[in-house]
């Protein structure tokens, strides 16, 4: 299997935000318990069904995290497997694994720039520009906004392109929410679309 962080993020769209959150949290070595808590707090979608351990393992496998083993709080020179096979370690020793972001992981997080993603999205789809800004603005509402409401707003503003032959709308509000969510400008929270910090900065 190809091991590449950007591939990992692209192929696991449900988890991209969680992967990044973990990578940001591991500037120092962190334990599984700490990371599990962090992950649970960051989960925003029912599609994020994997356990913290599985998410962390994916990052390890794809070179975003490095690990070390601690035996009774002391750094152990070897892997978890080595420790398990090591007879010199007493049976009641406390063995844990900790995770730290690698340079590749740091780079992956640093190159993630939602504002530029959003800018790029808008720049490459000029015919949808009005729609993007209308959606971003509407999603600044305190309680967020539903897809149906966005569809109404877009339609009334004439921001939905139409097929010249039969007049059928060629994109729906769910195009805009999907594209903006992927770019990091929106998030789905408490049953509504909300603008993110990055989204706010672009929207201005």
């Amino acid at each position: 299997m190809k091991h590449d962080l950007q591939e990992l993020f692209a192929r696991n769209r449900a988890y991209a935000a969680l992967y990044r959150a973990v990578l940001r949290a591991c500037s120092e070595y962190r334990s599984l318990d700490v990371l599990s808590e962090c992950i649970e707090q960051q989960k925003t979608s029912a599609s994020q069904i994997q356990s913290a351990a599985a998410i962390i393992e994916s990052l390890v496998r794809n070179g975003g995290l490095e690990t070390r083993v601690l035996v009774n709080g002391e750094v152990y020179n070897g892997t978890l497997r080595d420790a398990q096979a090591d007879d010199s370690i007493p049976q009641d020793a406390v063995v844990t694994q900790e995770y730290k972001t690698t340079q590749a992981g740091v780079d992956a997080v640093n190159t993630y720039n939602p504002e530029s993603l959003i800018d790029s999205l808008i720049a490459t789809h000029p015919s949808y520009e009005l729609g993007y800004y209308l959606v971003l603005e509407a999603c600044e509402a305190q309680d967020g906004v539903s897809t149906q409401e966005l569809q109404k707003i877009l339609r009334e503003a004439g921001a939905l392109p139409q097929d010249p032959v039969n007049g059928v709308e060629t994109v729906h509000a769910s195009y805009f929410t999907g594209a903006l969510e992927t770019a990091g400008a929106l998030e789905w929270r408490n049953g509504a679309w909300h603008i993110t910090e990055a989204g706010k900065r672009v929207s201005r």
């Binding site: 599609s47 060629t170 994109v171 729906h172 509000a173 769910s174 195009y175 929410t177 999907g178 594209a179």
Partner: peptide, 9 residues
């Protein structure tokens, strides 16, 4: 592509 809308599940 996400057009005309983005299926997810």
């Amino acid at each position: 592509t996400g057009e005309p809308y983005q299926p997810e599940m």
